[in-house]
């Protein structure tokens, strides 16, 4: 088992959150700008829900992606940081069968 460390990269949960919410934001932004029907606007008393939610989600997504990029998480490859007296922890055993 190697002791080297690596950054979480695309596996960083912030990348996944930022990516998905940001993508949702772009879709909503598109719908809000090009696809807002009068009936939909009337539903919410004139508020363009898709447009506003889209703007906020896009900004949020970019912020999370930037956070993950600027402050990457370092993951140790060896997970056994705390010895467990009850487990016969054999790090070479592969669980992925």
């Amino acid at each position: 088992m190697s002791e080297q460390k690596h950054t979480a990269g695309a596996f960083d949960v912030r990348t996944i959150i930022g990516g998905l919410i940001g993508l949702y934001g772009l879709i909503l932004l598109f719908l809000g700008v090009f696809h807002a029907t009068d009936a939909e606007l009337e539903k919410a008393d004139g508020m363009n829900v898709n447009l506003w939610a889209g703007v906020i989600m896009t900004v949020f997504g970019i912020a999370f992606l930037a956070w993950a990029r600027l402050r990457p998480v370092v993951v140790p490859d060896d997970p056994a940081s705390t010895p467990d007296p009850t487990a016969s922890a054999d790090p070479t055993t592969s669980a992925g069968g």
């Binding site: 088992m1 993951v75 140790p76 997970p79 056994a80 940081s81 705390t82 467990d84 487990a87 922890a89 054999d90 790090p91 055993t93 592969s94 669980a95 992925g96």
Partner: peptide, 13 residues
């Protein structure tokens, strides 16, 4: 996923 402690407790990381 590499060992059972990893599988169940995410390596406490």
């Amino acid at each position: 996923v590499s060992s059972s402690i990893d599988f169940f407790l995410s390596g406490r990381s």
